[in-house]
Amino acid sequence: MRLYAVTVYAFLYLPIAIIALFSFSAGRSASSMDGFTTAWYARALSNPFVMESLWTSLRVALLSAILATVSGTMAALALTGMKGRLRALFDGLVMIAVMIPGVVIGIAALIALMTVFGAVNPWIELILGRQLSMGLGSLIGLHGMFTMSLVVLIVRGRMETFDRAQIEASNDLGADPFGTFRQVTLPQIAPAILAGFLLAFTFSFDDFIMAFFVAGSETTLPIYIFSSIRRGVTPEINAIGTMVMVASLILLMIAQILLRPDKSRAEG
């Protein structure tokens, strides 16, 4: 049984280890290991295409995660303890956003936005002298819409496990709603909010498929990696991949540790 578990863990982590290993290979060929070098890392970090797409990805991930965390937390606060049709409608929207494949969400957003842009652009051009097009705005909008759903699920999960009597007690003692939120609710849900933010950031940073459709002329890092591996895997791509994996592993570990007390409490 234990051996089996070790095998499955090896299966889960072997491919990650292989990429990290080959990123240090001194040979030009990406498929054999000869020598040790960190040159590919230096090369990746001085490649202007890599740095530019990295910069785009970071901006999109940061902005979409901030917007998603704020509006997702607001929605989670409103939804807790709420019943009726509006609650059912919102639960439905959150589920749809999470369940519909990214490829369909990407396509739907692409044709909807292109149709709207096509209709309004003559007017926008007339008034502002420029046109609407796909790019940072559509990337942030679409990633944020998806990751906001994750934030709602995570924050609402935490809201539902904490003792509501504390809020009532605070109200009875004369605190105004904002005071109660700041002094009672926020300290308890803060770890969940931060975890939601980290997950939102990681998702946006790693997403390829939605970005592929709505990026317009922008290139995010996953889009760069995807088009590079179509031309063949290089040690440089392995170095980029390793850095991306290590960065997301660190963020995810932090997110998981933040969510941990929540689980132990839910288990009682």
């Binding site: 863990y9 889960l12 982590y13 072997l14 491919p15 990650i16 292989i18 990429i19 080959f22 498929s31 997950l199 990681t202 998702f203 790693d206 390829f208 996953p222 990696i225 995807f226 591996i229 895997v233 991949g241 991306v244 994996m245 997301s248 592993l249 995810l252 570990m253 998981q256």
Partner: peptide
């Protein structure tokens, strides 16, 4: 340790299998 890989780039994890 089981859940973390799921949240990291599926793109990079998949292309590792090109090697294997």
């Amino acid at each position: 340790l089981v859940i973390v890989p799921f949240w990291t780039s599926i793109l990079i994890r998949s292309y590792a299998w090109i090697y294997l």
